[in-house]
Design a protein around this nucleic acid. Sequence first.
DNA 1: TAAAGCAAAAATTTATAAATAATTGGCGGC
DNA 2: GCCGCCAATTATTTATAAATTTTTGCTTTA
Lengths: 232, 232
Amino acid sequence: MRPDLPSQKVDQPATLATTIYARLKADILTTRLEPGRKLQSRFLMEQYNVGQTPLREALNRLTTEEFVVGMEQRGFYVKEVSKEELQELTKTRCWVEGLALRESMQNATQAWEEALLVAHHRLDRTLRSLKPDTFEDNPDWEKVHRAFHATLIGLCGSRPLLGFCEQLADRLYRYRMMSIAKAYPARKVGAEHSDILQAVLARDGEQAVRLLQQHYQRTADVIYSDLDGLLA
Amino acid sequence: MRPDLPSQKVDQPATLATTIYARLKADILTTRLEPGRKLQSRFLMEQYNVGQTPLREALNRLTTEEFVVGMEQRGFYVKEVSKEELQELTKTRCWVEGLALRESMQNATQAWEEALLVAHHRLDRTLRSLKPDTFEDNPDWEKVHRAFHATLIGLCGSRPLLGFCEQLADRLYRYRMMSIAKAYPARKVGAEHSDILQAVLARDGEQAVRLLQQHYQRTADVIYSDLDGLLA
DNA sequence: TAAAGCAAAAATTTATAAATAATTGGCGGC
DNA sequence: GCCGCCAATTATTTATAAATTTTTGCTTTA
């Protein structure tokens, strides 16, 4: 019984569980589902129009990734945020991406340097905010920003490490979303990215790592001070 | 009352999903469920005496941890092994635990050094094999061995990093299980652990890191050569 | 004769729904 | 304060339906 008309699912067969997993993750990272919120099955079922099975499968996946906390016999909650976690995540990211960038630069190829140049160029000409005065997150910018950072460490030679970096990026993204409106447009992140690129192209590994870590640390510092008000 | 158990929800009555998750994970790591095997729902349901729901929840958790591969609409499989992955995991573990050990040593306290000493002592007086001639894995040894390595990096100050190290240890454990019978008792791992302990107590960070990485690399080398026969 | 193409059949996975069991947390009585 | 009952929620089973993959077998073609 094959359908006569090919649906869009023929090319990309995704299960409902995978779809709802992606939607939940996105909603948690953007804080549309705010930290600490209880994720009741009834609420989620009508909110996302899915049954229990794919929903619980999605929640279980998110649990192992620490975006959701599962209390045995007491349901699921969106993972809380805290200044302590922000610091730990930032510190860890500085360590691990520092490592990965060093390795990446040792494996550097011409193609990689060119890809990095392109990634930076795209980042450079993408607007941070959709509106000029008030801040409205530009999803395109998030995409190219992430691509730039992913390219930096992409040649480190360890898929497990890259996966870990991605998870750290996700978990920190949520913190960034919480305070980003305030920080805009005080900071010149564009310059920081350019400086990192310069150091990489100049083959100055130590400087590149230092700048990258500084970049992450500065971001965390801004969020950290905002978090006082946000958690109050 | 009860001592703080590190980051796990052990004191709660576990759900079936959590129980079956642990059992499946153990069976995969010990290769009782061999790499590449298809995990059919019917088979697992009667093998472990559980219903669909907790089973699928467990499989979904294992998927995000890379112990199980889920092919959309085509079921679940035990993650394959490969020499490439063995190398990547080992390399990554050397990098990351090297980092973590350095940090740990910088945060060293007297209590930590004493805990490490005790952990090593327990490891030292636990038999590697249950039988003197042929090899039969002693689960107690695995436990104290893991505890020793966990203590080494335990003071690094990053729970995310410790979680990542634990996952790397799990994933490498399976490779160790595959070839451990052969390697026994050729190698003197006891001496390697003692050397690491000595270096830590002597506060020689660089030496300790070097020895730890050598320890992991040697293990991988033994497995690597065995893997030719095992994958044939 | 073999190989390739197809389509129906079988098997399996995925999802929904409903019923049951088990657990938590609150409320009131003592 | 403590104990037990009650309501709400979660966890699990079972049954079934829907969707998709895999197998099978037939027909056509070279």
